[in-house]
Amino acid sequence: MDFVQIFSLTITQAVGVTALIYLFAAIGLNVQFGYTGLLNFGQVAFVAAGAYAVGVIVLTFDLGLWLAVVVGVVVSTLLALLLGIPTLRLRADYLAIVTIAASELLRLLVRSIAFKDVFGGAQGLNGKLGQEFHDLNPLPADFTLPVLTWSRQDLWVVIVGWSLALLFTLLVWGLVRSPWGRVVKGIREDEDAVVSLGKNVFVYKMQALIIGGGIAAFGGILWAVAKQSVQPDTFQPDFTFFVYTILLLGGAARVFGPIAGTIIFWFLLAGFGELLSSLINNGYIEFLTPTDVGSIRFMLMGLGLMLLMIFRPQGIFGDRRELALDAR
């Protein structure tokens, strides 16, 4: 058993590219669900919007990556409007069902044979995505890190990704401590009360949906650029629920909740996976095969979400005082 290797692989994943994708979605969801109380179960659609914007603009239309970034933000805004206009007046549970339905609807559309020419059908779009970004990589060609096992290309993605994530965290921090933040928190607590005080609740909810969706779209853009591939079936509803798990783990409605949640979530998940694989491969566990590790990881994720919601809905660092008041 090589514990150093297990640890290094774990750390690499806990703050790596995949973790970053979830982090962006979680920062966005924190604006929507954490602060505004919108039960958006279709967050994966915004990530998909960002990823497909890059895929379609770069591969289908053969245009530049920077244009794709702009298109990604525009498309996610349009998606927020499309999703929000019919649903934001609905009850919380209806909103949840409609947003998850809309995200599935979009996935089925992009993977369909009918639009294969544009979206690439079930295989999605694979190829040289984001060359412009990788060309900017300032790291020396033979760069390697101690302990961490990122390639030069991944490290560049991670550096830019974390910088962006911190920038978005700062943005959220600025927003939620302003009077704007006060209104959205009021909406989370009781929408009707805020209406009775003369605020146009619909507009604020829409703004929260757009901002949160836009941040999540950057997760999708990062995905396409880092993995050079956009596949429809990676945008399943479960993605959204893992983002919820992350957010609840770190604590909803806390500025650093998404960051803490992402690191802890991926550290535990990756660490457990690596450890279990290693135990199986070294013959310590005989009743499981290496292919079982994936399912067991997912089982633990589901179990984790349940237990978190039951025992610590305020997250690991949450405030007990707030919990006592939480009627939901």
């Binding site: 006060r182 928190k185 009021g186 989370r188 607590e189 707030e322």
Partner: peptide, 12 residues
């Protein structure tokens, strides 16, 4: 608005 301070309730 339970999870907001009294003053924030007022300022709204």
């Amino acid at each position: 608005l339970s999870r907001m301070s009294v003053i924030d309730n007022m300022l709204l």
